[in-house]
Write a protein that binds this DNA or RNA. Structure first.
Lengths: 339, 339
DNA sequence: CATCCCTATGACAACGTTGACAATGCGAGC
DNA sequence: GCTCGCATTGTCAACGTTGTCATAGGGATG
């Protein structure tokens, strides 16, 4: 049973004895169609197994009903949660979600919007670091593609977004470690192309200064927000003769990496080494010990961002920023230093 | 700088002094265009900031270049890995991935293809349990949407897919527990609407019988392949006076749930209770103790399935099944029973 | 009873591209 | 020099919808 030449609106019209326009009206739930005709059209459509052609509709209406999610590091649970948030908002709506992974936003910023254009998207949700890329925001505007951003830190007036205060959150979790009694705290930094890496570092340093501690550059190890990079960075830190008593990882994935590294070095967490993360992503709960972290409401931010895109597409609503709260989540991966 | 009336192919043609057809040829890399004209057209397009209209193209060519991924349980790392596999295969190609989460395939099978139609997809990758749904396969064929299936177990001739031998894999991991010395083994079953739940159960029972053990129905707890359902099921099992010495969870998510339940019951894993999973998903590595499981090459299967969809779309290639190997992955969550 | 307005319906062009086919021009073979 | 073939370019319709505007009829209004 190979499909035979999909029926068109013309066929339905002919079969029901009405004009194509009337069929169109029926299928779009428009008023000004008598019930009898409405029924007749539906019956004819059913009989012919008619289904509207989305592309033709998209062409004439100039909207594809496709919304994109642009992100960089596909394996992270951060992105998974973002996606779930966007899908949650889009559920039941006519919009579909297209996922657009970009290998390196920093390197390919110029090509990103061309890619989105070639997908015919109506709007996009930009995850970091694309959410902070001036080039992308600019191209998007001139391409007429609506957007909303996740955790933007710069150009806050350029486009709407769901924000979170990285600096304060980072300050709080660093203060938590200091309050526990830690004085020698190392930092595993995130991908430097993400603005939040700097913001979180700033928060840490504020907490350090408030406690009269110095921010030692030799205690900062670079990472990329990936589990592997966290593992590597922790290995470098723990191999030193004067290893720190605690590690501030700039996200949970890297904290998990550090956890694995500690395990391999024979260090008990939190007894021999405290580790804290950032984000409160899924992995923080699964890991053992479960990771003490700062909750970023990623899911909610994604819902909000998707909502902003939809709002622009439907009503052309005013563009705004929506602030989201963080919260310290104390679990088992940090304790007072043993020595 | 609001965008001004996107330039069309007609504008470019006029500006370059050639016909629209020639412009079309240039943008599609077709032969039979002289270099001088090719250059002239490109320059004109550049000057006008022309970008082809994907929807018009899609309409006339009858292909949207959209491929869908249909799945049910969005939070699972299984789906995340599937998605990464599909994206990996599609990278650099002209196809885009649209994610189609379905709340309950069993309940909404009739509406699924309508949803796919309304997204204008050219093809889809079906994850379980959609991959085993006769209604969906049938509707898909009559809608002319190509598909490939992940881990199909029924109607193997109906459509191509990437298969894995659930029965044998399940038999192997059950045999592993038995070899360790376990005699009282409980089972946490997966979502009964997924055919693999039955297949894995069959594999377990084969191993039991080979060892002269009975498959006790009162040792089988229902689950849904989700972490929470695994937690609940394990709680029920561990609350009993005669708790088992080992648990066979039908996937890793549920094994993680069981792990958390054991922890809350004050049971050490693997000392007091052995737990094994299925899939070798991401969480199995992160959990502590890391979960002993059977590796299903989910990523590779997704790559293969995506490949099959693309192949059908490009060449109309012959439809086949591709078998993928499993492998026992021994980690720390199972050991010989202590008593 | 004439007028007006509103509902129900249809005719036709437009959306921006590509496919089928025609036309042109130029060099080669005879 | 004439014909043939091929490379190059163009013309026009088609893809399947929806938007705009026109038209016919049927009360309500005066």
């Amino acid at each position: 049973m190979r499909q035979q030449k999909r029926a068109t609106i013309v066929d339905v019209g002919r079969s029901a004895g009405v004009s194509t326009k009337t069929v169109s009206r029926v299928f779009n739930g428009e008023p000004h169609v008598s019930d009898s005709i409405r029924q007749r059209v539906r019956a004819a459509a059913e009989a012919l197994n008619y289904h509207p052609n989305v592309m033709a509709r998209a062409l004439v209406q100039r909207r594809s009903n496709l919304i994109g999610l642009v992100y960089e590091n596909p394996s992270s649970s951060y992105v998974t949660e973002l996606q779930m948030g966007v899908l949650h908002r889009l559920r039941g709506e006519r919009y579909r979600l297209v996922v657009i992974p970009i290998e390196s936003v920093a390197e390919h910023a110029g090509e990103v919007v061309a890619l989105l254009r070639s997908a015919g998207l109506d709007g996009v949700v930009l995850a970091p670091p694309a959410s902070d890329d001036a080039r992308i925001l600019n191209d998007l505007a001139s391409a007429g593609i609506r957007c909303a951003r996740i955790a933007p830190t710069r150009l806050l007036d350029a486009a709407p977004g769901a924000t979170v205060d990285d600096v304060v959150a980072a300050r709080e979790i660093a203060a938590y470690l200091i309050d526990l009694g830690h004085r020698d705290i190392a930092i595993i930094k995130g991908d430097p192309t993400h603005a939040s890496a700097e913001a979180r570092l700033l928060g840490y340093s504020q907490a350090f200064h408030a406690a009269g501690l110095a921010l030692r550059l030799d205690r900062i190890e670079p990472g990329l927000f990936t589990r592997d990079s966290g593992y590597e960075a922790a290995m470098r830190l723990l191999a030193r003769p004067d290893r720190p008593t605690a590690i501030l990882a700039q996200n949970d994935e890297m904290a998990v990496g550090a956890l694995i590294a500690a395990r391999e070095c024979g260090l008990g967490v939190p007894h021999d080494l405290s580790i804290v993360g950032f984000d409160d992503s899924d992995v923080a709960r699964i890991a053992w010990p479960a990771i003490t972290t700062v909750r970023q409401p990623v899911f909610d931010m994604a819902v909000a961002a998707a909502d902003m895109v939809v709002a622009q597409l439907e009503g052309g609503l005013a563009e705004t920023l929506r602030a989201h709260d963080h919260a310290l989540v104390v679990r088992g991966s940090a304790a007072a230093p043993s020595a």
